[in-house]
Design a protein around this nucleic acid. Sequence first.
DNA 1: TAAAGATATGTCAAATATGACATAATACAA
DNA 2: TTGTATTATGTCATATTTGACATATCTTTA
Lengths: 103, 103
Amino acid sequence: MRKEKIKKLKSKGWKIGSAGDFLGLSPEESAYIDLKLNLSANLRKLRTEQNLTQIEMAKLIHSSQSRVAKIETGDPTVSLDLIIKSLLALGASKKQLARVISS
Amino acid sequence: MRKEKIKKLKSKGWKIGSAGDFLGLSPEESAYIDLKLNLSANLRKLRTEQNLTQIEMAKLIHSSQSRVAKIETGDPTVSLDLIIKSLLALGASKKQLARVISS
DNA sequence: TAAAGATATGTCAAATATGACATAATACAA
DNA sequence: TTGTATTATGTCATATTTGACATATCTTTA
């Protein structure tokens, strides 16, 4: 489907922080995707800091390696819910989440 | 989490754990739900501060009055994505989001 | 170099979230 | 009261997200 592809291209083409001028996104759309990418990047950071493989991470959140990879690579089919749940599963505190979000 | 709150959540249809057993509530599960409820409450606050009805809010996020009501009442079918998108549509900044989340 | 380990990508059926609608419940004036 | 506006609830077809799987692409180690 076309809409899906565009969505994917958009998120894939992003560099964190450079958001949406290029793709004609509204400020809210940009902010929303930036938020997700920001949290995703932080998830990978947390995971690697804890010396976990994606498979081990997957078990922690009762998911699969491939989905963990999708989370960390900013796949557009990944919800904020899943990202946040994953961060919490890694022991991230509310303050840590807040710090990532406001950055 | 207080008993009162848990009861309310249960009555609203939250399904926590495998059998709806609240004894199995993990720290990250409760943190996740707290996060959503916290953001939902803040959304209502922002909306009313801006003197918007749920119908007006719905137009803002291209949704319906009933879904806005569900967002604000903590309906378990509402995703974090929708809550965050709504907050951003009301003009909430990253810092404001962070503040709510860490509280 | 090759093998092993780790991560990325594509796909799909099942699960979950969605907007929309009808209608009930509540609030608040006239 | 009786209306009128606003918010809550229930339902449902459609849309999106999910874990899982297969397989491809790195990445490291011997």
